[in-house]
Every structure is written in structure tokens, then in C-alpha cells.
């Protein structure tokens, strides 16, 4: 745990089903401010669904998500102590507090790298076009893409596209960034350039929740690792402990499997 920090995100009893298949079975965890929190587990364990519920790409069936003191997805009506769903605009305001980096980048193909990053600050945060472009250039510089501002996504490699996607998230000044298997769609030789950027962000104190199969990244960068299986939290702890002396049989089985690949 990052010493001296306070909880930024609190999740309690998060559940989600698709049809009659329950993907998340009452998941609870807390992420501290400035922490790198890594989710691992076999595919189908519900890791991605956790991230998608956090910024409301999926609507959870049950559970409480709080960002700081603020409930996510609803507001409490003080007089009646009841919940009221947020309006679309209020929900959008909340959503932009969570940056999201997708497995398949999901850049806007009709926009240049610079415009991909600037469109949010300009259209959503209301910055002037000039200010938004300036911020976008700064963020692209930060992910070492200063030389590719005018290129469209189709002219960039996978690793470059993913770094544009990270810059796009950063430009919104989110309180935390969710990474959904950010290197899974990349050629092996391009993985490190994305991980390097994420390492740098972690070192700067950006709060990150990362779903990944990169065990060396989890081991080196994570403050805490949470292991999931079958929609449940199997165990959670500092990476040295999870990788060094896993307590749960499912963790051991999963680690044996991925580390001996």
C-alpha cells in the first residue's frame, strides 16, 4: 500500500450478470490514492468486467462504488435517504474522472494523434481549441510521441496507438486510469514501450488499476495485486507475497500456468 495515502476508490459488493451467467459475485476492494493496483487471474474471471463497471460501460447489478466521497452512478437524496440515478450529463462528468485504456486502443480513426487527444479537452472540458491542442501536444510528448502528432492511427504502430490512447486519457486529467489488458493486442516487441510509459506514470504517482497478463510488470510495478477467479476475489496483497507465497490454490495454479508458458 502506498504509505500515508487515503482511499481513492472503494468498491463494495459489486455484482454483475450477463443473462443468467453471473460474472461478478460481490467483489469488494479499495484502491489508495497514487497506487498501482493490478488485477490478475484466468480469462473469464471477470477482471475486465470490474473495470467496465467502474466507469459505467456496464451498469452493475448491485454494489457500491465510491470515488473519494462521491458515489458513482447515483446520488443520495438527503431528505429521503434514497438513491437517485444520475442524469446523462452528470454521469458523463463522472465518467471522465476515470481514464480508460482499451485492449484494442479504440482511437478515433478519422482524427490525427493530436486531435484524438485534444477532442476531449476541447469538446468536454470546454478548453479553447488552441489550449486543447497545446495540452494534447504536451501529453503526446510525455508518452514520447512528439514526432507523430499529425499522423492518423492507421499510420501508427500498435504500441504508438496505445500510447496515444494513454495520452488521450491523461489529457482529461482523470483521478485514476483503468487499463484493460493494454498490451494484449500488441506484437511482443512493442509491449515494452507501453509498459515503460505505464511505469513512468506509476512513478509520478498516477493512480492506476491495471488488468494484465504481464506478470513481470505486476511484480515490479504494482503496489498491490488482486487475484480473481470465477467472479470472486481469491486473494489480494503486495506482489512479493502474491508471487512469492501465494495462499490460495487457485492463485498457485494460475501462476504456475502463466509463468511456465
Amino acid at each position: 500500500m502506498v504509505s500515508g495515502s487515503k482511499p481513492l476508490l472503494t468498491v463494495e459488493g459489486l455484482s454483475k450478470s450477463f443473462g443468467d451467467r453471473q460474472i461478478l459475485k460481490s467483489i469488494s476492494f479499495t484502491v489508495m490514492d497514487g497506487e498501482t493496483f493490478v488485477l490478475i487471474g484466468p480469462s473469464g474471471s471477470g477482471k475486465t468486467t470490474v473495470l467496465r463497471c467502474l466507469n459505467r460501460l456496464e451498469v452493475p447489478d448491485a454494489g457500491d462504488i465510491r470515488l473519494g466521497d462521491e458515489p458513482v452512478g447515483y446520488r443520495l437524496v438527503a431528505e429521503s435517504h434514497t438513491r437517485e440515478a444520475l442524469s446523462e450529463a452528470a454521469l458523463a462528468r463522472q465518467q471522465r474522472q476515470f481514464g480508460f485504456v482499451f485492449q484494442r486502443f479504440n482511437l478515433f480513426p478519422h482524427l490525427t494523434a493530436l486531435d484524438n487527444v485534444a477532442v476531449g479537452p476541447h469538446r468536454v472540458l470546454g478548453l479553447s481549441k488552441a489550449q486543447a491542442l497545446e495540452r494534447a501536444a504536451t501529453e503526446l510528448e510525455r508518452v514520447r510521441l512528439g514526432a507523430h502528432l499529425a499522423k492518423r492511427p492507421s499510420q501508427l504502430s500498435g504500441g504508438q496507438q496505445q500510447r496515444v490512447a494513454i495520452a488521450r486519457a491523461l489529457a482529461m486529467r482523470p483521478r485514476l486510469i483503468l487499463f484493460d489488458e493494454p498490451t494484449s493486442a500488441l506484437d511482443p516487441e512493442l509491449v515494452h514501450e507501453v509498459l515503460d510509459v505505464m511505469r513512468a506514470l506509476a512513478a509520478e504517482g498516477m493512480t492506476m488499476i491495471v488488468v494484465t497478463h504481464e506478470m513481470s510488470f505486476a511484480r515490479q510495478v504494482a503496489n498491490r495485486v488482486m487475484v480473481m477467479a470465477d467472479g470472486l476475489v481469491v486473494e489480494e496483497g503486495p506482489p512479493e507475497r502474491i508471487f512469492g507465497e501465494p495462499r490460495d490454490a487457485r492463485t498457485r495454479q494460475f501462476l504456475t500456468h502463466v509463468l511456465n508458458r
Binding site: 450529463a89 481514464g99 482499451f102
Partner: peptide, 16 residues
């Protein structure tokens, strides 16, 4: 669908 999701994740409204 990923385009809509990416745009939502930077806080765009449906109209935008």
C-alpha cells in the same frame, strides 16, 4: 462499438 465506448470514457455525451 469501441468508438462509442472510447468517447464515453472521455466523458462525451451521446449527442457529442
Amino acid at each position: 462499438k469501441g468508438q462509442t465506448e472510447a468517447a464515453r470514457s472521455i466523458g462525451m455525451t451521446h449527442g457529442q
